[in-house]
Design a binder for these strands. Structure first.
Length: 526
RNA sequence: GGGCCUGUAGCUUAGUCAGGUAGAGCGACGGGCUUUUAACCCGUCGGCCGCGGGUUCGAAUCCCGUCAGGCCCGCCA
């Protein structure tokens, strides 16, 4: 059984109404790590629906969270906004300076992300957390938290092992300059929290409005109750023992609600570069990823991996393999029957089918409709050899990958493949590099006999039709009349042109090159 | 210091929750496609399931220990 179906099944024991949630702080660029947060919850939501439960999926934007520090991509003028909720800070303009015409900081980073989510078929109910505060929905929880201040303090200190300062208070009011930093609470009289800020100015915050917020650990526990959340997978940072999940559960109960069951997902890492971090520049954005691979493949990256296993993401060969695995699974699924499968194979097949199901952009779509019929590896080859799309289709027709014209899926794949190849993420290993002069290995491999074959070939090139077939026929003809095997003739050409001992059909590569270039290349042999 | 994840064929890994003869892909090798391939099809090779112990008729799977790698524990998915 797929993990999402399994999660849904265990949720179903607690009732028919399910609310699956994700929460992200929009403090900077979103990256594919956030995609895991989103998709883990969204797939469980879909699984609930598949099971016949009533379920909704909400995405809570932590717009009330304060700016923690001035990130590298921000201008130093953001210094004054540290401690201010992201919803109340102007977005950075093109120069990194605060720009009042560009909406809020939170929206600035959120909107492109929502766009990408739409492309992968995720359409959550979006809740801006600062609006929940503005609407007074937090007020009861805030009141309750303040009244239970000592109990909450105990929970946090005991479970997290952290020691809270003496002046700690379970509510952070916003001071006169908009920041929550250095604001000390002096007293509480519902609905007002009285305070003195770091400038020495005194004031009060109404807990019915967005004039302050609960600290993170309490905020999280409170919203579980406010939104009736039954499932919220959290990143491993919240999941380690003593982390915010562990303190959230008893705090949520203390505030009068049932918490969701703890579920922790592992992080996505960029292969060889450790965990993703926007501030360190170790990141790949969803927009970037979607320029390379189709949305169903991006979903599949998440769907195929168990929640508690980390994912090594890289835009090189791993992504190729994952994409090809998707294609292969699809064709295998239609082929073999249930019979003759033992228990393990049945489970594996069932799980794989689940992964395919959750990879579809729209729930209920037939996975087989997303079958391209050509491996990504092969497509990358053709895309590099053939400059014109039409030639790619011709080649695919010849190899029986497609019958008539390419379908929409394939056309989109080729266009993405060209992006991939032209961009910085395409793996070196898969690149086809045309040599301009013979490399050392080529010179070593090409002995006198092979050289005379090439010389002969060169002299006939001008008479031959400059097409894949014409060139290939010429190669075959000359090789037959030479003393070496056909295979050696081809290998010599591979070494000469690509610097490797094999490759895609050499005639098709040559036909895309200028004749003069080929001639110069042969002449570059000593 | 506390905790999590991982260790299975050359590489990537499934199978671990519900113990019952180790599966797959890539690579390599061989063959086919009377045209070469990193296409396509068929086949072969390849695993003391990190190591040691225990439970069991039976362990990759459960338990204990141990080694190695990665990660989290101020904010970060």
């Amino acid at each position: 059984m797929h993990w999402a179906d399994h999660a849904a099944l265990s949720l179903s024991e607690n009732g028919k109404l399910q609310v699956c949630a994700s929460g992200i702080t929009p403090s900077g660029e979103f990256h594919i790590g956030h995609i895991r947060e989103i998709l883990t919850a969204e797939m469980i939501h879909r699984a609930c629906l598949d099971l016949g439960l009533e379920s909704k999926y909400i995405f809570i934007v932590d717009s009330m969270d304060p700016l923690r520090r001035v990130y590298d991509f921000l201008s130093p003028s953001y210094e004054k906004y540290i401690g201010t909720p992201l919803a109340f800070i102007p977005a950075p303009g093109p120069d990194g300076e605060p720009d009042n015409s560009g909406g809020s900081y939170a929206e600035y980073f959120l909107n492109p992300f929502l766009n990408s989510l739409k492309k992968i078929g995720v359409t959550p109910e979006i809740i801006m957390n600062h609006e929940t505060y503005e609407d007074g929905k937090f007020s009861e929880k805030i009141d309750s938290a303040i009244l239970n201040k000592d109990k909450i303090r105990n929970i946090i200190e005991e479970i997290s092992g952290r020691e809270l300062p003496d002046n700690w208070f379970p509510y952070s009011p916003i001071g006169s300059d908009g920041s929550m930093d250095g604001v000390e609470v002096t007293s509480y009289e519902k609905p007002y929290v009285y305070w003195k800020d770091r400038l020495g100015i005194e004031g009060k915050s109404n807990i019915m409005k967005a004039e302050g917020k609960l600290p993170w650990r309490i905020d999280w526990a409170a919203r579980w109750g406010i939104h009736q959340i039954t499932s919220e997978p959290a990143g491993k940072d919240h999941g380690s023992s003593g982390g915010s999940y562990d303190t959230g559960i008893p705090i949520c109960r203390l505030l009068g609600s049932d918490p969701p069951k703890k579920m922790v997902y592992e992080w996505i890492q960029l292969k060889g570069m450790g965990p993703m971090s926007s501030s360190k520049g170790v990141t790949i954005g969803p927009v970037e990823a979607l320029n390379l691979v189709p949305p169903e493949i991006l979903r599949y990256v998440i769907a195929r991996s168990k929640v508690n296993r980390h994912i090594d993401f890289d835009t090189g060969s791993t992504l190729f393999e994952t994409a090809d695995e998707y294609e292969r699974l699809l064709s295998d699924m239609s082929a073999n029957e249930e019979r003759g499968l033992n228990r393990r194979q049945r489970i594996a097949k069932e799980t794989n089918l689940g992964a395919l199901k959750f990879s579809q952009i729209y729930r209920g779509d037939d996975p087989f409709k997303s079958l391209g019929g050509v491996s990504f590896r092969h497509l990358s080859l053709l895309a590099q050899i053939k400059n014109r799309d039409e030639d790619v289709w011709t080649s695919l027709r010849k190899s029986n990958h497609i019958r008539i014209g390419p379908n929409k899926i394939l056309i989109e794949r080729l266009s993405r493949m060209r992006n991939w190849i032209d961009g910085p993420h395409f793996p070196e290993k898969s690149k086809i590099i045309i040599h301009r002069v013979a490399c050392d290995e080529a010179i070593e491999f090409i002995d006198e006999q092979k050289k005379s074959f090439l010389t002969e070939l060169k002299s006939k090139l001008n008479d031959c039709e400059w097409s894949e077939n014409g060139i290939n026929n010429l190669i075959r003809m000359i090789s037959k009349n030479s003393n070496i095997t056909t295979k050696d003739c081809y290998v010599a050409l591979y070494w000469l042109i690509l610097g490797k001992n094999n490759g895609p059909r050499i005639a098709s590569i040559m036909s895309e090159l200028d004749k003069d270039k080929v001639i110069l290349l042969i002449e570059s042999l000593p």
